[in-house]
Computed example of a mutant assay.
Amino acid sequence: MLLEALINEDAVKEGDIAPDFELQRQDGGLFRLHDLLKEKNVVLYFYPKDSTSGCTKQACEFRNQYEVFKEYGAEVVGVSSDSLQSHKKFERVHHLPFTLLSDKGGQIRSIYGVPRKLGVFPGRVTYIIDKSKRVRAIYNSMSKPLEHISTAIEVLRSINEEQQSPQ
């Protein structure tokens, strides 16, 4: 527990610049966060495991709302420590239109300070990051996977209203 407390002190917080990283996508190509942020807002969500009940519900709801995310100029990116093969299958079976990244060893999860449930299970945390690389909101809930999507949409709506209002 002490180690988890130390990690969480360094966790990414709202208002921080999102740490850049590079990971492999499910198609084998490389993904770099700051490259995508040059063009779009990003909904970066960390989830425990492909093909589990809560993670499948969450991914499918991101899929079902994907057009809304696109309308708000955002891209959805999922991260877990599952293998590329697992991600490919998860994407194919559930027709996921967004990027899944393989964070083997949990290095990026650690950089962001995503907590573990009961100190063992990888946590479920969503970061909404605007094009200026600023973390605008963080939603952390293992037990409410669908609320990650509605929270992200609300934050993106707010970001769009800010960007469209006269200065």
Rank of each mutant, 00 (worst) to 15 (best):
F21V: 10
L101D: 08
A11D: 06
D16Y: 02
E39D: 07
M1H: 10
S80M: 11
S51D: 10
A11G: 06
S141D: 12
Y47N: 00
K104D: 10
I111A: 08
L100S: 01
V12P: 06
S132H: 15
I153L: 15
D130H: 09
D82Y: 01
F98D: 01
H87E: 07
F62T: 02
I108A: 02
G54S: 08
Q85G: 11
I149N: 04
Q163T: 11
L6D: 03
E4C: 08
L100P: 00
V114E: 05
D50T: 02
Y47V: 01
P166S: 13
L101C: 13
A137V: 12
M142F: 14
R116I: 05
L6M: 08
G54R: 00
Q26T: 04
L23E: 06
E14S: 10
V77N: 02
G73F: 09
Y112G: 12
H87N: 10
S158D: 13
V125N: 09
R109N: 13
S53K: 04
D82F: 02
K13S: 07
L33I: 04
E162M: 15
G78N: 05
V125L: 14
I153H: 05
Q85K: 12
P19Q: 04
I17L: 09
E161H: 14
G119D: 13
K88E: 11
E154T: 14
K89V: 10
K40S: 10
F46T: 03
V135C: 12
Y127A: 08
V43D: 02
L156Y: 13
K104S: 13
I128D: 05
Y112N: 10
I7H: 05
R134I: 15
N64V: 01
F62K: 00
S53W: 07
K117S: 12
K133N: 14
F31S: 07
Q163V: 13
P145R: 08
N41P: 10
E9M: 05
K88T: 09
R92P: 07
I17K: 05
K38I: 07
E39W: 01
V114M: 12
R116W: 12
L96G: 03
R63P: 01
V79H: 08
E91D: 06
D35C: 03
L3N: 10
V68G: 03
Q58R: 00
S132E: 15
S53D: 04
S158T: 14
Y66Q: 10
K104W: 08
F31H: 09
I153K: 11
V114R: 00
L6A: 12
L44P: 03
N41Y: 08
Q107H: 13
S143N: 15
N160L: 15
E162L: 14
Y139D: 11
I7N: 08
A74Y: 01
E154N: 15
K88F: 03
F46G: 04
A74D: 02
R109A: 14
I17A: 09
V114G: 06
A18Q: 01
N64W: 08
A152Q: 04
F90Y: 05
A18V: 03
F31W: 05
V77T: 05
E91G: 02
E147P: 12
V42Q: 00
G73H: 07
R157T: 15
R116Y: 14
F121G: 08
Q164Y: 11
T151E: 14
N140M: 13
E22R: 03
